[in-house]
Design a protein around this nucleic acid. Structure first.
Lengths: 138, 138
DNA sequence: GCCCATTTGTCCGTATGTATA
DNA sequence: TTATACATACGGACAAATGGG
Protein backbone atom coordinates (compact mmCIF):
# COMPACT_ATOMS: atom_id res chain seq x y z
CA UNK A 1 0.00 0.00 0.00
CA UNK A 2 3.06 2.17 -0.15
CA UNK A 3 5.37 3.64 -2.71
CA UNK A 4 8.65 2.24 -4.00
CA UNK A 5 10.93 4.85 -5.56
CA UNK A 6 13.15 2.12 -7.05
CA UNK A 7 10.28 0.37 -8.84
CA UNK A 8 9.89 0.53 -12.59
CA UNK A 9 6.51 2.25 -12.34
CA UNK A 10 6.79 6.00 -11.78
CA UNK A 11 6.08 7.16 -8.26
CA UNK A 12 3.25 9.48 -9.31
CA UNK A 13 1.58 6.55 -11.08
CA UNK A 14 1.99 4.40 -8.00
CA UNK A 15 0.29 7.09 -5.93
CA UNK A 16 -2.46 7.42 -8.53
CA UNK A 17 -2.86 3.62 -8.50
CA UNK A 18 -3.31 3.59 -4.73
CA UNK A 19 -5.91 6.35 -4.77
CA UNK A 20 -7.70 4.85 -7.78
CA UNK A 21 -7.93 1.59 -5.91
CA UNK A 22 -9.39 3.27 -2.85
CA UNK A 23 -12.02 4.78 -5.09
CA UNK A 24 -12.72 1.53 -6.89
CA UNK A 25 -13.23 -0.37 -3.67
CA UNK A 26 -15.42 2.33 -2.18
CA UNK A 27 -12.97 3.12 0.61
CA UNK A 28 -13.22 6.58 -0.90
CA UNK A 29 -16.86 7.13 -1.78
CA UNK A 30 -18.28 9.64 -4.26
CA UNK A 31 -18.24 13.12 -2.76
CA UNK A 32 -15.61 12.17 -0.24
CA UNK A 33 -12.44 14.18 0.20
CA UNK A 34 -9.13 12.63 -0.79
CA UNK A 35 -6.10 13.24 1.40
CA UNK A 36 -4.78 16.77 0.98
CA UNK A 37 -1.59 17.33 -0.96
CA UNK A 38 0.49 18.04 2.17
CA UNK A 39 -1.00 14.91 3.74
CA UNK A 40 0.06 12.84 0.75
CA UNK A 41 3.55 14.25 1.12
CA UNK A 42 3.66 12.76 4.62
CA UNK A 43 1.78 9.56 3.85
CA UNK A 44 3.70 8.57 0.73
CA UNK A 45 6.98 10.37 1.26
CA UNK A 46 6.87 12.21 -2.06
CA UNK A 47 7.22 15.84 -3.08
CA UNK A 48 4.09 17.89 -3.33
CA UNK A 49 4.59 18.24 -7.07
CA UNK A 50 4.55 14.46 -7.35
CA UNK A 51 1.34 14.24 -5.35
CA UNK A 52 -0.19 16.87 -7.62
CA UNK A 53 0.90 14.91 -10.66
CA UNK A 54 -0.95 11.87 -9.30
CA UNK A 55 -4.10 13.91 -8.78
CA UNK A 56 -3.82 15.29 -12.31
CA UNK A 57 -3.88 11.71 -13.60
CA UNK A 58 -7.10 10.98 -11.73
CA UNK A 59 -8.68 14.23 -12.87
CA UNK A 60 -7.86 13.32 -16.44
CA UNK A 61 -9.66 10.03 -15.95
CA UNK A 62 -12.68 11.87 -14.66
CA UNK A 63 -12.50 10.12 -11.30
CA UNK A 64 -12.00 13.16 -9.10
CA UNK A 65 -12.66 16.87 -9.09
CA UNK A 66 -10.36 19.38 -7.44
CA UNK A 67 -11.80 22.52 -5.89
CA UNK A 68 -9.27 25.23 -5.06
CA UNK A 69 -8.70 25.64 -1.34
CA UNK A 70 -11.14 22.90 -0.60
CA UNK A 71 -9.49 19.77 -1.75
CA UNK A 72 -10.02 16.93 -4.17
CA UNK A 73 -13.18 14.84 -3.99
CA UNK A 74 -14.33 11.67 -5.69
CA UNK A 75 -16.56 12.85 -8.50
CA UNK A 76 -20.20 12.38 -7.53
CA UNK A 77 -22.40 10.60 -10.04
CA UNK A 78 -24.95 12.92 -11.56
CA UNK A 79 -28.35 11.76 -12.73
CA UNK A 80 -28.16 11.18 -16.43
CA UNK A 81 -30.70 12.73 -18.71
CA UNK A 82 -31.52 10.58 -21.70
CA UNK A 83 -31.05 12.06 -25.13
CA UNK A 84 -32.87 10.23 -27.85
CA UNK A 85 -31.21 9.55 -31.15
CA UNK A 86 -33.74 9.22 -33.90
CA UNK A 87 -33.01 6.78 -36.73
CA UNK A 88 -30.26 7.98 -39.01
CA UNK A 89 -28.86 10.49 -36.57
CA UNK A 90 -25.24 10.23 -35.55
CA UNK A 91 -23.28 11.15 -32.47
CA UNK A 92 -19.63 11.44 -31.64
CA UNK A 93 -17.76 11.93 -28.38
CA UNK A 94 -14.75 14.10 -27.69
CA UNK A 95 -13.27 16.32 -25.01
CA UNK A 96 -14.91 19.72 -24.75
CA UNK A 97 -13.19 22.91 -25.80
CA UNK A 98 -12.28 25.34 -23.00
CA UNK A 99 -15.22 27.45 -24.09
CA UNK A 100 -17.64 24.54 -23.87
CA UNK A 101 -16.25 23.59 -20.48
CA UNK A 102 -17.01 27.06 -19.15
CA UNK A 103 -20.45 27.34 -20.71
CA UNK A 104 -21.63 23.90 -19.67
CA UNK A 105 -19.68 23.75 -16.39
CA UNK A 106 -17.90 20.56 -17.31
CA UNK A 107 -15.17 19.34 -14.98
CA UNK A 108 -11.84 17.99 -16.19
CA UNK A 109 -11.90 14.48 -17.52
CA UNK A 110 -15.51 14.57 -18.68
CA UNK A 111 -16.22 14.24 -22.42
CA UNK A 112 -19.17 15.53 -24.39
CA UNK A 113 -21.57 13.93 -26.81
CA UNK A 114 -22.01 15.79 -30.07
CA UNK A 115 -25.29 14.96 -31.75
CA UNK A 116 -25.58 15.84 -35.42
CA UNK A 117 -29.08 16.62 -36.55
CA UNK A 118 -29.53 17.27 -40.25
CA UNK A 119 -29.88 20.94 -41.11
CA UNK A 120 -29.14 22.08 -37.59
CA UNK A 121 -26.15 23.01 -35.52
CA UNK A 122 -24.68 20.03 -33.69
CA UNK A 123 -25.85 19.78 -30.10
CA UNK A 124 -23.35 19.29 -27.30
CA UNK A 125 -24.15 17.37 -24.11
CA UNK A 126 -21.90 16.76 -21.08
CA UNK A 127 -21.38 13.01 -20.87
CA UNK A 128 -21.54 12.92 -17.08
CA UNK A 129 -25.16 14.02 -17.21
CA UNK A 130 -26.27 12.38 -20.42
CA UNK A 131 -26.92 8.96 -21.90
CA UNK A 132 -27.74 8.34 -25.52
CA UNK A 133 -30.59 6.09 -26.49
CA UNK A 134 -31.75 4.97 -29.88
CA UNK A 135 -35.43 5.71 -30.36
CA UNK A 136 -37.77 2.79 -29.84
CA UNK A 137 -39.48 1.24 -32.79
CA UNK A 138 -43.06 2.19 -33.24
CA UNK B 1 1.44 36.34 -29.99
CA UNK B 2 3.46 36.42 -26.84
CA UNK B 3 3.07 35.81 -23.14
CA UNK B 4 2.36 38.32 -20.40
CA UNK B 5 3.41 37.13 -16.93
CA UNK B 6 1.48 39.95 -15.28
CA UNK B 7 -1.81 39.09 -16.95
CA UNK B 8 -4.68 37.52 -15.06
CA UNK B 9 -4.65 34.44 -17.23
CA UNK B 10 -2.00 31.93 -16.14
CA UNK B 11 1.06 31.77 -18.32
CA UNK B 12 0.66 28.07 -19.10
CA UNK B 13 -2.87 28.79 -20.30
CA UNK B 14 -1.62 31.62 -22.47
CA UNK B 15 0.90 29.27 -24.04
CA UNK B 16 -1.79 26.63 -24.52
CA UNK B 17 -4.03 29.30 -26.10
CA UNK B 18 -1.34 30.26 -28.60
CA UNK B 19 -0.67 26.67 -29.63
CA UNK B 20 -4.39 25.83 -29.75
CA UNK B 21 -4.88 28.75 -32.06
CA UNK B 22 -2.10 27.62 -34.35
CA UNK B 23 -3.82 24.26 -34.55
CA UNK B 24 -7.24 25.77 -35.14
CA UNK B 25 -6.02 27.95 -37.98
CA UNK B 26 -4.09 25.12 -39.59
CA UNK B 27 -0.74 26.78 -39.08
CA UNK B 28 -0.05 23.53 -37.26
CA UNK B 29 -1.60 20.76 -39.32
CA UNK B 30 -2.54 17.26 -38.15
CA UNK B 31 0.56 15.12 -37.84
CA UNK B 32 2.84 18.12 -37.60
CA UNK B 33 5.34 18.54 -34.79
CA UNK B 34 4.81 21.29 -32.25
CA UNK B 35 7.84 23.22 -31.03
CA UNK B 36 9.95 21.14 -28.65
CA UNK B 37 9.85 21.98 -24.96
CA UNK B 38 13.30 23.62 -24.97
CA UNK B 39 12.23 25.60 -28.01
CA UNK B 40 9.17 26.87 -26.18
CA UNK B 41 11.38 27.91 -23.30
CA UNK B 42 13.23 30.16 -25.73
CA UNK B 43 10.23 31.31 -27.75
CA UNK B 44 7.94 32.16 -24.85
CA UNK B 45 10.43 32.86 -22.09
CA UNK B 46 8.89 30.36 -19.68
CA UNK B 47 10.26 27.51 -17.62
CA UNK B 48 10.22 24.07 -19.12
CA UNK B 49 7.73 22.90 -16.50
CA UNK B 50 5.38 25.66 -17.61
CA UNK B 51 5.73 24.63 -21.25
CA UNK B 52 4.98 21.05 -20.25
CA UNK B 53 1.92 22.20 -18.35
CA UNK B 54 0.63 23.89 -21.50
CA UNK B 55 1.15 20.70 -23.50
CA UNK B 56 -0.66 18.71 -20.81
CA UNK B 57 -3.66 20.99 -21.30
CA UNK B 58 -3.74 20.29 -25.03
CA UNK B 59 -3.29 16.56 -24.49
CA UNK B 60 -6.23 16.61 -22.11
CA UNK B 61 -8.30 18.24 -24.83
CA UNK B 62 -7.30 15.52 -27.24
CA UNK B 63 -5.71 18.01 -29.62
CA UNK B 64 -2.16 16.67 -29.51
CA UNK B 65 -0.32 13.46 -28.80
CA UNK B 66 3.11 13.35 -27.22
CA UNK B 67 5.54 10.61 -28.23
CA UNK B 68 8.51 10.19 -25.91
CA UNK B 69 11.79 11.26 -27.46
CA UNK B 70 10.01 12.33 -30.58
CA UNK B 71 7.95 15.32 -29.67
CA UNK B 72 4.35 16.43 -29.62
CA UNK B 73 2.26 16.30 -32.78
CA UNK B 74 -1.19 17.53 -33.70
CA UNK B 75 -3.41 14.48 -33.36
CA UNK B 76 -4.18 13.06 -36.81
CA UNK B 77 -7.83 12.39 -37.54
CA UNK B 78 -8.57 8.70 -37.80
CA UNK B 79 -11.28 7.24 -39.99
CA UNK B 80 -14.34 6.61 -37.88
CA UNK B 81 -16.07 3.30 -37.93
CA UNK B 82 -19.81 3.51 -37.44
CA UNK B 83 -21.37 1.57 -34.61
CA UNK B 84 -25.09 1.07 -34.92
CA UNK B 85 -27.34 1.53 -31.94
CA UNK B 86 -30.46 -0.54 -32.30
CA UNK B 87 -33.73 0.82 -30.86
CA UNK B 88 -33.78 0.76 -27.10
CA UNK B 89 -30.03 0.41 -26.70
CA UNK B 90 -28.16 3.00 -24.72
CA UNK B 91 -24.64 4.40 -24.80
CA UNK B 92 -22.60 6.52 -22.48
CA UNK B 93 -19.25 8.23 -22.88
CA UNK B 94 -16.42 8.53 -20.36
CA UNK B 95 -12.66 8.54 -20.16
CA UNK B 96 -11.09 5.10 -20.45
CA UNK B 97 -9.44 3.35 -17.53
CA UNK B 98 -5.65 2.91 -17.73
CA UNK B 99 -6.28 -0.70 -18.61
CA UNK B 100 -8.62 0.17 -21.46
CA UNK B 101 -6.17 2.75 -22.72
CA UNK B 102 -3.46 0.11 -22.94
CA UNK B 103 -5.64 -2.55 -24.52
CA UNK B 104 -7.24 -0.29 -27.10
CA UNK B 105 -4.21 1.97 -27.63
CA UNK B 106 -6.11 5.11 -26.75
CA UNK B 107 -4.13 8.34 -26.47
CA UNK B 108 -4.66 10.88 -23.70
CA UNK B 109 -7.68 13.10 -24.12
CA UNK B 110 -9.72 10.58 -26.08
CA UNK B 111 -12.94 9.25 -24.51
CA UNK B 112 -14.71 5.96 -25.13
CA UNK B 113 -18.24 5.05 -25.99
CA UNK B 114 -19.77 2.35 -23.81
CA UNK B 115 -22.63 0.60 -25.54
CA UNK B 116 -24.97 -1.40 -23.33
CA UNK B 117 -26.55 -4.33 -25.04
CA UNK B 118 -29.11 -6.26 -22.97
CA UNK B 119 -27.78 -9.51 -21.57
CA UNK B 120 -24.24 -8.83 -22.74
CA UNK B 121 -21.15 -7.21 -21.44
CA UNK B 122 -20.97 -3.52 -22.33
CA UNK B 123 -18.84 -2.85 -25.40
CA UNK B 124 -16.18 -0.18 -25.35
CA UNK B 125 -15.15 1.83 -28.41
CA UNK B 126 -12.48 4.53 -28.73
CA UNK B 127 -14.30 7.72 -29.65
CA UNK B 128 -11.57 8.91 -32.02
CA UNK B 129 -12.29 5.94 -34.30
CA UNK B 130 -16.00 5.55 -33.74
CA UNK B 131 -19.29 7.28 -34.43
CA UNK B 132 -22.63 6.16 -33.10
CA UNK B 133 -25.63 5.92 -35.35
CA UNK B 134 -29.21 5.08 -34.54
CA UNK B 135 -30.42 2.26 -36.76
CA UNK B 136 -32.51 3.29 -39.72
CA UNK B 137 -36.20 2.54 -39.73
CA UNK B 138 -37.27 -0.39 -41.79
C1' DG C 1 28.77 -0.57 -34.38
C1' DC C 2 29.55 3.72 -31.86
C1' DC C 3 29.16 8.45 -30.28
C1' DC C 4 26.49 12.47 -29.47
C1' DA C 5 22.88 15.82 -29.59
C1' DT C 6 18.04 16.08 -28.98
C1' DT C 7 13.84 15.30 -26.56
C1' DT C 8 10.66 13.80 -23.33
C1' DG C 9 9.99 11.61 -18.50
C1' DT C 10 10.48 11.90 -13.73
C1' DC C 11 11.40 13.99 -9.28
C1' DC C 12 12.83 17.23 -6.35
C1' DG C 13 13.08 21.91 -4.04
C1' DT C 14 11.63 26.76 -3.42
C1' DA C 15 8.71 30.68 -3.57
C1' DT C 16 4.59 33.46 -3.94
C1' DG C 17 -0.36 34.22 -4.40
C1' DT C 18 -5.06 33.65 -2.88
C1' DA C 19 -9.13 32.12 -0.87
C1' DT C 20 -11.13 29.59 2.96
C1' DA C 21 -12.22 28.24 7.70
C1' DT D 1 -5.46 36.72 12.57
C1' DT D 2 -3.69 32.35 11.71
C1' DA D 3 -3.38 28.06 9.66
C1' DT D 4 -4.67 25.32 5.77
C1' DA D 5 -4.82 24.10 0.95
C1' DC D 6 -4.59 24.52 -3.80
C1' DA D 7 -2.55 27.29 -8.10
C1' DT D 8 1.16 29.00 -10.41
C1' DA D 9 5.94 29.44 -11.77
C1' DC D 10 10.65 28.92 -11.51
C1' DG D 11 14.83 26.20 -11.23
C1' DG D 12 17.88 22.05 -11.27
C1' DA D 13 19.11 17.28 -11.93
C1' DC D 14 19.26 12.87 -13.87
C1' DA D 15 17.30 9.00 -16.78
C1' DA D 16 16.31 6.90 -21.10
C1' DA D 17 15.66 6.30 -25.80
C1' DT D 18 15.84 8.01 -30.41
C1' DG D 19 18.08 9.49 -34.61
C1' DG D 20 21.96 11.34 -37.33
C1' DG D 21 26.48 11.01 -38.78
Amino acid sequence: MSVDPTADRPVYQQVADILRDRIRTGELAPGQLLPSEPHMVDEFGVARSTARQALAVLRGEGLVVTVPRRGTVVRPRADAEIVTLVPGQEAEARMPSPDERRRLKIPEGVPVFVVKRPGQEPEVYPADRTRLRAADEQ
